[in-house]
């Protein structure tokens, strides 16, 4: 089951990246989380036909990938895997909106293609921003940031718990599905006759495991709360990071730097 295995490997890789110790990794997770939110909002707020104005936004992911010393391979892999849905919805734009709006010599480009391209750019920006956030924080730090931002504790604990068990369960699922596909002639899909028993069996095992885990946790003094050791305080650098990027995004949103630079270079008119 290649998909599950690839997910499993990706999880591991992202976790390793989060363990790096770069300047970027030292920034407070709250600052990084809020910056990402502002970034995504600004990207989404660009008008539907904006292309050139979106380009300066690439400063953000490019900077972060370089500063965080993140490998490009796994990140671009995930971007490619997520692409089909966006293309599926976006490809209707060129079909539905055939108004020519841009002219290159004898060629006209329709508004639909422009907005489609714009969608692809937004997608690229949004997806890399989210992956970078995880790759530079790690799930524990994000959980801590969420707690500080007053997200309900039950939810944060749930998030962290689930993340931990994902490793265990994914491995178990991979083994089970592999065993099934080795014994069946139908490739990777699960036949309807075993839908219930295969997943049901896994579910029962999961529930039993949860109970064992719960007992073990009680034995070790669990009282319904998860205490995170890594408590960090916001320092000046974090605030500068947040405010600096936010100001940059808003300026980019208001001034089309790309157009300006291009005009400057080809001599204006």
């Amino acid at each position: 089951m290649s998909k599950m295995e690839s997910y499993w490997l990706d999880l591991k890789q992202l976790d390793e990246m989060a363990g790096n110790r770069t300047v970027l990794h030292r920034i407070h997770p709250c600052a990084k989380l809020l910056t990402t939110v502002i970034f995504l909002t600004v990207v989404a707020s660009f008008s539907k036909y904006e292309i050139s104005g979106l380009f300066p936004m690439f400063f953000y992911p490019i900077f972060l990938i370089i500063l965080g010393e993140l490998p490009l391979g796994p990140i671009s892999n995930r971007v490619l895997l997520a692409l089909p849905f966006v293309i599926f919805i976006g490809i209707f734009n060129p079909l539905l909106d055939q108004n020519p709006v841009v002219q290159f010599g004898p060629f006209f480009i329709s508004g639909g293609w422009i907005s489609f391209l714009s969608i692809l750019l937004r997608f690229l920006l949004a997806v890399t921003a989210a992956l970078i956030l995880v790759a530079t924080c790690g799930i524990d730090a994000i959980g801590m940031a969420l707690l500080q931002l007053k997200v309900p504790k039950v939810f944060v604990i749930q998030l962290l718990f689930m993340y931990r068990y994902l490793y265990v369960l994914l491995e178990e699922f991979i083994r089970t599905i592999r065993a099934h596909s080795l014994r069946s002639f139908q490739g990777e899909g699960i036949r309807p006759r075993v839908w219930g028993s295969l997943l049901g069996q896994l579910l029962l095992r999961t529930i039993d495991r949860a109970q064992r885990i719960y007992q073990a946790m009680l034995c070790r003094g669990f009282d319904g709360e998860i205490r995170l050791i890594r408590q960090k305080k916001l320092v000046g650098m974090d605030i500068v990071y947040f405010l600096g990027w936010s100001a940059f995004f808003i300026i980019i949103r208001l001034v089309n730097v790309t157009q300006w630079l291009g005009t400057l270079l080809i001599g204006g008119y």
């Binding site: 718990f161 994914l170 896994l202 999961t206």
Partner: peptide
Amino acid sequence: KVPLMGVLGAF
């Protein structure tokens, strides 16, 4: 329910 939620989420 808390550990059960976590494990079922992963499930």
